[in-house]
């Protein structure tokens, strides 16, 4: 599944809130490059924070798109705020909670909370979910953009990948 940074939608309140999770796997190739071993350092696989922002953008983007039946081309226009305080390692789960703050024909603003769920390890028990950051975003409805630019008719934003995500999450994707 190309460029999907959430694995499942676990909660959806249409037009209000969407919760999604992403399991971080050591099999993900980018973790081998982020960061590889150097003379001074062992391999250090850490989920890139830029991709955590993308995970939130997909979570919030689906919420905003769902609000109008995926008729709008919803694109991330601005990362208003991204504040992450802790690294996310393989074996952990990220839980993204996005809520719509404002919604207009031109676009939407969303608030987001990122939690880290850390399972047990031999040296410690499972940890309670911990809030590790907040990510606030601004989305544009592309066909109502303020510059007046025109785009193709087809909704190229909500592709097959998003339909698969919704269907495997038990949500009808008849758009």
């Amino acid at each position: 599944m190309r460029w999907m940074w959430i694995d499942r939608i676990v909660e959806l309140v249409p037009g209000e809130k969407l919760v999604a999770i992403k399991h971080i796997s050591l099999a993900e190739e980018h973790l081998h490059d982020h960061f590889p071993a150097t003379v001074a350092r062992k391999p250090t696989p850490i989920m890139p924070m830029s991709l955590i922002v993308e995970g939130m953008a997909q979570t919030a983007g689906v919420l905003v798109g769902h609000a109008e039946g995926f008729k709008q081309k919803v694109v991330l226009a601005k990362v208003a705020k991204a504040d992450l305080t802790r690294e996310a390692l393989p074996g952990c789960t990220l839980r993204y909670t996005a809520t719509i703050e404002q919604f207009t024909p031109v676009g939407a603003s969303t608030k987001g909370v990122v939690e880290l769920i850390e399972p047990a390890r031999p040296d410690q028990g499972a940890q309670p979910a911990e809030v590790i950051g907040t990510i606030d975003l601004l989305f544009s409805h592309l066909d109502n953009n303020m510059s007046g630019a025109r785009y193709p008719e087809e909704n190229f934003v909500f592709s097959e990948s998003f339909k698969t995500l919704m269907e495997t999450s038990g949500i009808a994707a008849d758009f």
Partner: peptide, 14 residues
């Protein structure tokens, strides 16, 4: 930029 105008507009409303 143009998207900032939307951001400012949302913030003014709030």
């Amino acid at each position: 930029e143009s998207i900032d105008i939307l951001d400012i507009s949302f913030k003014l409303e709030q």
